[in-house]
Nucleic acid binder design. Structure first.
Length: 261
DNA sequence: TCACTCGAACGTCAGGTCCG
DNA sequence: CGGACCTGACGTTCGAGTGA
């Protein structure tokens, strides 16, 4: 349990907020400005901490915890509420029977409902649609490389530096000519079979691979962030649970005392 | 020092989803 | 419907740790 949610994907270097911290303490001077107007709750994070790390555990119809690196703020959320967060790319977890993750859109004053419509990632564990169940049941077929290896038919050639290698066993062997439009790239699936691909197609492919590479990186970053958020959420909920158990215990004792008097 | 294991990060593919 | 984007799966690489 080391980190908090990294808002905007940036690590602040500031000390992580204590997820088990003083949830009942009064908000400090740098507390988020909270405005509750009927069904809209606006959270404005302190400007002193432009990259404040935020974790929120929000429960409908209960006192909910908005947690940042610098403070903790309790918010009463009425049913059907809308959360307005001034910080872009914020991630908020709510509990409404099931976990929901909300990705606030980058535009300022984005409106996000906590009722699940805006759920943006796989954290919506409550989504039990048949489509999703079916998707989860799907298993991926083996890669082309594995299939080829199983068949024992295609050797993976030694690829020269800079050449492309794909799982289908296609290799860029040579680029002839440097002029626009005229260049041709030769591909081969094995030593006996060759075909040609125009350079613009290879450019498109390289661009696609580049974008996908960056997308994969971003996806992993978000996944790590989400896992951290879940871990923090576990800690916060465990703390809440402990506090509730203690409260129940003391109330029981108080009740017994009054009863014996 | 070397071989080995393990985990993290990465690149790519494939399939799903979203949106104009 | 097609293209862009997202993400699970798979294979690879690399560095750290460990035991012989």
């Amino acid at each position: 349990m080391d980190g908090m949610v990294e808002e905007n994907g940036t690590s602040t270097g500031a000390g992580p907020a204590d997820p088990l911290g003083s949830a009942s303490s009064s908000a400090p001077a740098s507390a988020p400005h909270v405005v509750a107007v009927t069904s809209i709750v606006q959270l404005t994070l302190p400007t002193q901490a432009p990259s404040a790390q935020v974790q929120s555990v929000i429960q409908p119809n209960q006192q909910s915890v908005i947690q940042t690196a610098s403070n903790i703020q309790s918010v009463q959320l009425p049913k059907g509420n809308v959360i307005l967060v001034s910080k872009p790319s914020s991630v908020i977890h709510t509990t409404q029977g099931t976990l929901q993750t909300l990705q606030i859109k980058p535009e300022p004053n984005s409106l996000v409902s906590t009722q699940g419509q805006s759920c943006s990632d796989d954290s919506c564990s409550g989504d039990e649609s048949p489509k999703r169940k079916y998707r989860e049941m799907l298993t991926r077929r083996p890669s082309y490389r594995k299939i080829l290896n199983d068949l024992g038919g295609a050797e993976i050639a030694v690829i020269p530096a800079g050449a492309l290698q794909t799982e289908s066993g296609l290799h860029t062997l040579a680029v002839s000519g440097g002029g626009a439009g005229g260049a041709i790239v030769q591909y081969s699936t094995n030593q006996d079979e060759h075909f040609y691909v125009p350079e613009d197609q290879t450019r498109k492919r390289e661009l696609r691979l580049l974008k996908n590479r960056e997308a994969a990186r971003e996806c992993r970053r978000k996944k790590k962030e989400y896992i951290k958020c879940l871990e923090n959420r576990v800690a916060v909920l465990e703390n809440q649970n402990k506090a509730l158990i203690e409260e129940l215990k003391s109330l029981k004792e108080l009740y017994c005392q009054q009863k014996t008097e």
